[in-house]
Amino acid sequence: MTVLTGNLVHHPNHSVLTLRGELDASSPDLITLAVDTVIDTGRQRLTVDVADLTFCDSQGLRALLHAERKLTAAGGAMELVHVHGLLGRVLGVTGLAKAFTITPSTV
C-alpha cells in the first residue's frame, strides 16, 4: 500500500494538485482540504495531476466527484490531467469520464 500524498501549488488564477500514491477510502480528506484551500484563496480553477496515482477505488472516485461538484458549485472548475492506467480504465468503464474535464496527455 502506498500512502497518498499531494502537493498543492497556487498560481495567480488557478491551482495545481499533484497526487502520488493510492487514492482510496483512507485518503479523501487530502482532496477535500485542497479544494477548500483553492476556494478559500479565491481561485476559480483546479488542475488535478494524476500521473503518479497508482490506485483509485470507489471512495477515491467519490472524492474526485465531490471535489468537482464543490468547485462547480463555487463557480469554479476542475480538470484532470495525465489520466492513464487503472484510473483511465475505471473512468471509461463506469462512464464517469463524462463527469470530468479530462485534458489528454501530450506525452
Results as ranks from 00 to 15, higher is better:
Asn7Ile: 07
Leu8Gln: 12
His10Tyr: 14
Pro12Met: 00
Pro12Leu: 01
Ser15Phe: 05
Leu17Ile: 13
Leu17Lys: 04
Thr18Val: 10
Leu19Ser: 01
Arg20Gly: 01
Gly21Leu: 02
Gly21Asp: 01
Glu22Gln: 03
Leu23Phe: 03
Leu23Asn: 02
Asp24Leu: 07
Ser26Cys: 02
Ser27Asp: 10
Asp29Gln: 13
Leu30Glu: 05
Leu30Met: 15
Leu33Thr: 11
Thr37Cys: 07
Asp40Phe: 04
Asp40Gly: 15
Asp40Val: 12
Thr41Tyr: 10
Gly42Ala: 07
Arg45Lys: 13
Arg45Thr: 02
Leu46Gln: 03
Ala51Cys: 03
Ala51His: 11
Ala51Arg: 08
Asp52Arg: 14
Leu53Glu: 03
Phe55Met: 01
Phe55Trp: 05
Ser58Ile: 09
Leu64Phe: 02
Leu64Trp: 03
Leu65Gln: 06
His66Lys: 04
Glu68Lys: 14
Ala73Pro: 06
Ala74Lys: 04
Ala74Asp: 14
Gly75Thr: 03
Gly75Val: 10
Met78Arg: 04
Val81Asp: 03
Val81Phe: 08
Arg89His: 12
Leu91Met: 11
Leu91Phe: 03
Val93Gly: 11
Thr94Asn: 06
Thr94Phe: 03
Thr94Gly: 04
Gly95Cys: 09
Gly95Ala: 04
Ala97Tyr: 11
Ala97Met: 13
Phe100Thr: 12
Ile102His: 11
Ile102Val: 15
Ile102Leu: 15
Ile102Asn: 10
Pro104Cys: 08
Pro104Trp: 09
